[in-house]
Design a protein around this nucleic acid. Sequence first.
DNA 1: CCGGAGACCTGATAGC
DNA 2: TGCTATCAGGTCTCCG
Length: 271
Amino acid sequence: MPELPEVETIRRELEPALLGTRVRSVWTSGFALRLGRPVDRDALVAACVGHRVRAVLRRAKYLVIEFDEPHRIVVHLGMSGRLLLVDARTPRPAHTHVVFALDGARELRYVDPRRFGLVAADAPELAALGLDPFDPALTGERMHKLTRATRRAVKEFLLDQRGVVGVGNIYACEALHVARIHPKTPASRLSRARATVLRDAIRAVLTQGLANRGTTLRDYVSAGGAIGDNQSHLRVYDRAGRPCPRPGCGQVRRLPNQARGTFYCPRCQCR
DNA sequence: CCGGAGACCTGATAGC
DNA sequence: TGCTATCAGGTCTCCG
């Protein structure tokens, strides 16, 4: 469900609301969240109960809630996860799997119908993540080096979190449209100039998504339960058959025989 | 090691 | 009105 703008929107809402707050207890539903990785309630308790929140960080699509050193909690929302900060008297919705009871009769709840997400005291996969799109270290040259290193289509490159992180299916389609690059273009065939244009396009679509507090097509809501506005600003994603936003251009199409929807304009996105 | 396919889940919606 | 099939903001793992 959530890509960088959605996760960052949640972070921006959670951090000021949680700073200094103490965790009183942890409840879990007993469901394994992520295949082969059940929630370890004891580890969560050890990591946060009695501790105060010192920071809420985002790494790629992960949220990291930091307590007094060295304690922390890592959350990934998968496809359908929600992290909600609510009054403890609010009825718990179905698929509530983890609840952190906080000072002030509030609760931080992890709700996830599909259970693709993650709530843990530790997440080794953080170490394998690539560069944040807004990291100054992601120069045009660095971007080109990354794209040159794979023979996959550029759309697949964007979804791979080992190179550039935070981009998922929606913003990958959007960035490629802004950059006028066909999704099936082999990443390795992008010139340095086009790789730089793509980096700038990624930053532009993510910045717009952030300004609109995320894209809500189905499940996404912020920590306070608010939906985003970015869905009304999408250029190509989920818009097959509608006109390309570039005046007098083509019609948005969906690539056939692809597991995940890839939307693009065949007229302005060339290989 | 790389890349592609399938797996993991539930729920909403489209089509018959 | 049901029923079934398809699809969904993500990653992992298992093959070749």
